[in-house]
Design a protein around this nucleic acid. Sequence first.
DNA 1: AAAATAATGATTGAAAATGATTGTTTTTAC
DNA 2: GTAAAAACAATCATTTTCAATCATTATTTT
Lengths: 250, 250
Amino acid sequence: MLTEERHATILNCLKEKEVVKIQELTEATGASESTIRRDLTDLEESGLLRRVHGGAAKVSRKRIEPSMGEKSNRFSEEKRAAGRLAASLIEDNDCVFIDAGTTTLALIPYIQAKNIVAVTSGFDHLRLLAEQGIEAYGTGGRLKQSTEALTGTGAVHGLQQYWFDKAFLGVNGIHLKAGYTTPDPEEAAVKTEAIKRAQQPFILADASKFQESTFAHIADLEDAVIITGKIPEKTRRMFEKVTDIKEALS
Amino acid sequence: MLTEERHATILNCLKEKEVVKIQELTEATGASESTIRRDLTDLEESGLLRRVHGGAAKVSRKRIEPSMGEKSNRFSEEKRAAGRLAASLIEDNDCVFIDAGTTTLALIPYIQAKNIVAVTSGFDHLRLLAEQGIEAYGTGGRLKQSTEALTGTGAVHGLQQYWFDKAFLGVNGIHLKAGYTTPDPEEAAVKTEAIKRAQQPFILADASKFQESTFAHIADLEDAVIITGKIPEKTRRMFEKVTDIKEALS
DNA sequence: AAAATAATGATTGAAAATGATTGTTTTTAC
DNA sequence: GTAAAAACAATCATTTTCAATCATTATTTT
């Protein structure tokens, strides 16, 4: 049985059931456990399902289609863990903002909450959210090609139509003195506005961002809660004096 | 067995199955593995199948291409001609609005003018414009999945930040009494706003749209100039009493 | 018929996919 | 809480598939 066939079989199993065990899949496909595990990893990275202990689960209410590239290894383990933790914070009926960037993109497949509304400045994010059957709004603004983000006054202006329960943002630097920073002032303006308009702002970042400082200031450390993969004990102690840290993989 | 015969055989195999292994094809055709591989490469380049490790798979019909391939058959000759004519109207330093929909998508590749700014409510349009190095802005608003358009008050609100030299819109109906119409009221609102904010609004439509009338009113006939492929002499005479018509392929 | 071109099949080392095994992590049972 | 069991990611050797090359065989063209 070909890889593509197995992938199709797996996704078919998930069309009917909410979750499926690995053993069921090895029987359905005749492949070994290792192979099925690899398949699940691939499919998860493509955003087509969600891995759970013991097997895999549906990712969306609506469409399960190969609409994104077959194999994008965009998400590191750390980003996935942080994304998962972040997604678990979204509750039914929430209105959330999701920033552009791969870090926040990783959280979208894990969203389980029902009946939520999402606003995003990310181009890919917008499509991915809509494909999951989530009511998705774009901010508007100029499409910055390098980052695939909608930025500028157009995006800020678009944001001002909304109010959020939660906002999930990526940043480039988290610094004790400089606070949250990013190299692009236009993007910084969008992020700042989003934090302003959210009751609970969250910053998603990996360990490498701590004690880094880039050009444009977004907000002060205490203005948001940090969600991260795993960070050194020392870093954690240093920063948690100033703001909350939610550490996945700890 | 002739090359053409093999190609037909291979495509036939794929009509019944989702994927087919190379070994199956060597048996079905009597050709060597090398030959089959070459066939698959050819057929993939023609867009008739997709190669996968171990064989070939059907092309999913609803696949969205990130950028338009060299020779995509998505656009009819008529749409292309209309798109070309529309694109030729865009001048250097113009600020233009480009509506969502395949008709307007067809004009983007033909844009030659330098230093222009484009605002669009189309999801694919936004990416395509940016890929062409055109400064591209999205309107914002809810992503309507079926049409891949940004709609609703968010989009209208976004539009109100801009003023256009020219606007290019697609419609579903062009009717002497009903004017320009479309089935979706939310999209109609966006189109109406765009026409309001453009010095020169253009409607792109093929012959089938004339004397059709759908639910939601966008604007009156005289509010815009019609760009179309080729339409019957009689239709042309009927409508040019009310508004200008630019006919490509005439 | 001779030469030029195209199609084919075999061979090769490289790349990808696979299944077994390892030790670790998570869950479950107590 | 701990211990056993199940599930896991990581690694390895093996197998399969692959693209590139070459020599051979058809098919044109001259």
